[in-house]
Amino acid sequence: MMGNLLEHMGIEKDRVHFSWISSAEATKFVDVVKEISDKVRAIGPNTKFVKDYI
């Protein structure tokens, strides 16, 4: 639901990921890291919710 509300506010869906990996699933971990990295690189840097310290 949190992901949905962020998306509703206009944050891209691929900015927040959830997964479930057991401690024995190193291969799944690597797959998920690759998948997430690819998706985030595809949407580019986050500009929307970043606090501007001036």
Binding site: R15, V16, H17, F18, S19, W20, K39, N46, V50, K51
Partner: peptide, 9 residues
Amino acid sequence: GADAVWVSG
């Protein structure tokens, strides 16, 4: 400034 967040259980 994070580009994405990943929560994993």
